[in-house]
Computed example of a mutant assay.
Amino acid sequence: MKQFFAIVVVCLVFGGCGPQTAREEPRSQGRSIAAVFQTLDNPFFVECNEGIKEVVSAHGDHLITLDSGWVSRRQEEQISELLDQGVSAVFLNPVNWKDVNGSLLKAQQRGVPCVIVDAPVKSPDLVVCQIASDNVEAGRLAARALRNARQSAKIVILHIRGNKACIDRIAGFEQELASRPDMEILEIEDGKGTAERSLPVMQELLAKHSDLDAVFAVNDPSAMGVISALENAGRLRDVTVVSVDGSAEGIAAVKAGKLYSTAVQFPREIGRIAAQRFYEHSSGETVEKEIRVPLELITVDNVHAFAEVP
């Protein structure tokens, strides 16, 4: 039996008996709606899920939430089983923006609408709409912050390969620095999006590039791994780190002077908008295909105006 991690209250069984594999809100007469996230280890996605659940519950429906653990194949299997269970809709945060196309096509063939959350997909014609932060602008904000911090820089980037949100962030970052040859990108490496995985990647980059003095981490968990590696190497004061998310950890790191900036996203609002657009669509209304939610840049100059951002 395939194992799923989920957020909810009553046990659902997917494909057999055994330990709890998914839980959901107490049943009403409403529909079963699913939300499938690339991970729930990142507080961003937990908040996003809460925004979805708020709207789903207000409509008398119940939400099933699954964690794909960064594994594209697992996410495909989860979606397939959810479709077999007869869910009425799927909110999807894809692990890989290309690999998910088969699952989206299957959902479309079964008449199950999909709404994409945070990380766009390659084939938007297969979904109702896509709601995400303006990720190109997020990269630009990070680059502008770095330009303010340093007159020149030798930069490494910690990426999450296959994730369109992060691809867009790097595109925006590179665009903003294109006219600055003194801001040199030495290398882009996959940090896998977590502190634990980013730490050894950053350690290798420090060994490889003794002259690096700036890091763009595509999300705050990656930045936490970068900061740990820099602290371990005694290099934190020498290297400027910029990031995206505006998580509680990221904000605390800015306050502590360990992270120069983080572009704050509004995950709960992204979740609310996604759910609202689904219900508008199900009522026969036409909805925008692409919705971009603005970000704000947090630095030491304004960090005290920000608490934990819901």
Rank of each mutant, 00 (worst) to 15 (best):
I7Y: 07
L12W: 10
L12H: 13
G15P: 13
G15T: 15
C17T: 15
G18L: 04
P19C: 09
P19F: 08
Q20E: 15
T21E: 10
T21P: 03
A22P: 12
E24D: 15
S28W: 11
S28I: 04
Q29C: 10
G30R: 02
R31D: 13
A34E: 14
Q38L: 01
T39S: 08
F44I: 04
F45W: 06
F45Q: 10
E47F: 04
E47D: 14
I52S: 07
V55G: 04
V56N: 06
V56G: 09
S57P: 13
A58R: 09
G60C: 08
G60T: 13
G60N: 14
L63I: 11
T65K: 01
S68N: 11
G69I: 03
R73N: 14
E76S: 13
Q78M: 05
Q78N: 11
Q78A: 07
S80K: 03
E81T: 14
D84I: 08
G86H: 09
V87Q: 02
A89T: 13
V90D: 07
V90W: 01
L92T: 12
K98G: 13
D99M: 03
D99E: 13
G102F: 08
G102I: 09
K106I: 07
A107V: 04
Q109R: 04
I116E: 06
P120Q: 08
D125F: 03
Q130D: 14
I131R: 00
S133L: 00
S133N: 12
N135R: 01
G139H: 04
A143L: 02
A145I: 05
L146E: 11
N148G: 14
Q151K: 00
S152L: 03
K154L: 01
K154S: 12
K154D: 14
I160N: 02
I160F: 05
G162R: 01
K164W: 04
R169F: 02
A171G: 15
Q175M: 05
E176Q: 11
E176V: 08
R180Q: 11
R180Y: 11
M183T: 13
E184S: 09
E187Q: 12
G191I: 00
K192Y: 07
G193F: 00
E196I: 03
E196C: 08
R197V: 07
S198P: 06
P200E: 15
L206K: 06
A207V: 10
S210N: 13
D213G: 11
A217K: 03
D220F: 02
P221G: 12
S222E: 13
M224W: 05
M224R: 03
G225M: 02
V226H: 08
S228D: 14
S228G: 14
L230R: 04
E231Y: 10
A233G: 14
V239F: 00
S243L: 00
S247N: 11
G250R: 02
G250E: 10
I251Q: 06
K255E: 12
G257F: 04
K258I: 05
T262E: 08
A263G: 14
Q265F: 01
P267C: 10
E269W: 05
I270V: 06
I270W: 00
I273D: 01
Y279E: 11
S282V: 05
S282T: 14
E285G: 08
E285I: 02
T286N: 03
E288D: 10
K289E: 05
E290Q: 01
V293F: 00
P294N: 12
E296V: 11
H304M: 06
A305G: 15
F306P: 10
